[in-house]
């Protein structure tokens, strides 16, 4: 038996819309959640490529290397940008004294 988790305490009703800054912040953490999904999808694409044993003219290894490493670099870049955004968020949180 387990206890239902989606019942929230009947506290004060939150306002319907968030202010602009909090809204941005929420979407940013959404983006952080999407990032690994994007990464997994990008790295799964090579599985659709034809193998070499079918017609003899499959994808060349150099193109495969290029694809994988470019995807990798892009993910690192996005993660870097998100890291900086998260830092700005954290410092704002500290000045606002408001939990996320």
């Amino acid at each position: 038996m387990s206890i239902s988790e989606d019942r929230r305490p009947q506290g004060v009703r939150p306002s319907l819309f968030l202010e602009r800054q909090s809204y941005r912040r929420r979407r940013l953490s959404d983006a952080a959640r999407f990032l690994p999904i994007l990464g997994a999808a990008l790295f799964a694409i090579p599985l659709l490529w034809p193998g070499s044993d079918e017609a003899g003219d499959g994808i060349r290894l150099s193109s495969a290397i290029l694809y994988i490493f470019v995807c990798w670099a892009v993910l690192i870049g996005i993660s870097l940008v998100f890291g900086f955004a998260a830092r700005r968020m954290a410092t704002q949180d500290e000045t606002d004294q408001r939990p996320d």
Binding site: L47, L61, S62
Partner: peptide, 18 residues
């Protein structure tokens, strides 16, 4: 040289990869 080598073609088993 990579492309002309014996491993020069994309040939990865999907199950092992995932």
């Amino acid at each position: 040289q990579i492309d002309s080598s014996e491993i020069g073609q994309w040939n990865v088993d999907a199950g092992r990869w995932t």
